[in-house]
């Protein structure tokens, strides 16, 4: 953790994550905020790399920046008549207050506690993760795969346009 590259990288990536996250909130156009969201995801993947979590960083890029954002693009494109502006609702002020509370609470806890753990650099994470997933957590892994299958089928079922339906709604 003494290496200057890590320190510099941490501050750069944290600033990028938080800055583009803030711009997601501030941007006036929904697609602009989507672009900032992707930048935020990518710099978050960089933060994972500084924590020597290479597998999770790649999964983050693949799933968040590569897939979920594309899903959002499809959602925006499939709702052509809906407004594209990114306006706030009336709940934004209570949300701001509660979020400030959350952030300051977490920051206070993080600052006040003595985290004296030495920190370990993992040489290789992917093998151990694989063994854990197919060993200790195999049941959860199977349930997660079933969940994904259900999500896949469910999403198709929800959006699928039946012929008799489309006449009534369109």
């Amino acid at each position: 953790m003494e290496s200057p590259g890590i320190v510099l990288g941490f501050y750069l990536l944290a600033g990028l994550t938080l800055g583009s996250g803030g711009l997601v909130f501030l941007a006036r156009n929904l697609l602009h905020s989507l672009a900032f969201l992707v930048i935020s995801f990518l710099s978050m993947a960089g933060l994972f790399l500084t924590l020597s979590a290479d597998f999770i960083a790649m999964a983050q890029i693949l799933i968040y920046a590569g897939s979920i954002s594309v899903l959002m693009v499809f959602a925006v494109m499939l709702t052509p008549l809906a407004s594209r502006d990114n306006s706030n609702s009336i709940y934004v002020f209570p949300a701001l207050i509660s979020a400030g509370g959350i952030a300051s609470f977490v920051a206070f806890i993080a600052w006040d506690t003595d985290w004296s753990g030495p920190g370990t650099d993992f040489d290789s994470t992917i093998g151990t993760i694989g063994q854990l997933l197919l060993g200790k957590y195999v049941l959860a892994f199977e349930i997660a795969s079933v969940l994904l299958l259900f999500a896949l089928v469910g999403a198709i079922m929800l959006v699928h346009q039946r012929d008799e339906d489309s006449e009534g709604t369109s």
């Binding site: 938080l18 407004s83 706030n88 709940y91 949300a95 701001l96 400030g100």
Partner: peptide, 12 residues
């Protein structure tokens, strides 16, 4: 916290 602001405060 930023995510919670966006999740609670956006209309879209």
């Amino acid at each position: 916290a930023l995510g919670s602001v966006i999740a609670l405060g956006k209309r879209n």
